[in-house]
Simulated scan of single mutants.
Amino acid sequence: MDKVYDSATEALDGLLHDGMLIAAGGFGLCGIPELLIDAIVESGVKDLTVASNNCGVDGFGLGKLLDTRQIKKMLSSYVGENAEFMRQYLSGELELEFNPQGTLAERMRAAGCGIPGFYTRTGVGTVVAEGKEHKDFNGETYILEEGIFADISIVKAWKADPTGNLIFRKTARNFNPPAAMCGKVCIVEVEEIVPTGSLDPDNIHLPGIFVHRLIQGEHEKRIEQRTTRKKEDA
């Protein structure tokens, strides 16, 4: 199977439709599939549900899909750094399902392993537990969380070979592996595609069995929050 496509638009061809569920990797602006996001913006697809730790920042990453009102609902654990996200949520324009970070990651990973649900203590006694099944194990209360089975996954990796074996760079790994696992179709953008067999098997973070389509592209290196100290007097 030839997994390598020439562009993000070609890699998404035939996959997008209104009302779909998309799992997106990344954390803030670290390891986000920005080329695929841009292609989704250009497609005009709407009423999207997006499962991602957060929603980028104003005007960049998933924030672009908020600006164009293409997202109907977010499954997230953090809404900071994006004023438009907060504005749409507080005004009732955007649905939001809050998830503790670990729970969100495990919901993606579980689905990728074919597990429809799991019990966790995280969220017990809070609004997170409302409407969910409760069960006691060894005297402790747990709540049932369901796996996230996405229509597609969009993720960003550092290196790949043509079969889709992936290596992520440092903290850019973040939510990308579990997001990649839970999509019926996984599309990955990378900085470099290397020949098959050139990656050390012990260094592969996600095997190509999870990856269906692959593109290589140039990426913008943004800094989410630049912090500097005042210049000291001589």
Rank of each mutant, 00 (worst) to 15 (best):
G56V: 05
G59K: 14
G59R: 07
F60Y: 15
L62C: 03
L62E: 06
K64T: 04
K64S: 02
L66W: 02
K72D: 14
K73N: 11
M74A: 06
M74T: 11
S77W: 12
Y78D: 10
V79G: 12
V79F: 14
G80S: 14
G80P: 01
E81I: 06
E81K: 02
N82M: 05
N82I: 04
E84Q: 06
F85H: 14
F85V: 03
Q88F: 05
Y89A: 09
L90I: 08
L90D: 10
S91C: 14
E93Q: 14
E93M: 08
L96H: 15
E97I: 06
F98I: 15
N99F: 15
P100M: 07
P100D: 14
G102P: 02
T103H: 12
L104D: 03
R107G: 01
M108C: 10
R109V: 04
R109L: 12
A111T: 01
G112Y: 01
G114R: 13
G114I: 04
G117E: 12
G117N: 09
F118T: 02
Y119T: 04
T120W: 07
R121K: 15
T122L: 15
V124H: 10
V124L: 00
T126V: 03
V128E: 05
A129L: 10
E130T: 15
K132H: 13
H134S: 11
K135T: 08
D136W: 02
D136T: 13
D136Y: 08
N138R: 08
N138Y: 11
T141K: 01
Y142L: 03
Y142T: 08
E145S: 03
E145A: 02
I148L: 07
F149A: 00
F149V: 06
I152G: 03
S153R: 08
S153V: 01
I154R: 04
V155T: 14
V155Q: 05
K156C: 03
K156N: 06
A157P: 10
W158K: 03
K159G: 01
K159I: 09
K159R: 13
D161W: 05
P162D: 11
L166H: 08
L166E: 01
L166W: 08
L166G: 02
L166C: 12
L166A: 02
I167S: 09
I167Q: 12
K170G: 00
T171Q: 03
N174E: 12
N174S: 15
F175S: 05
N176R: 10
P177H: 07
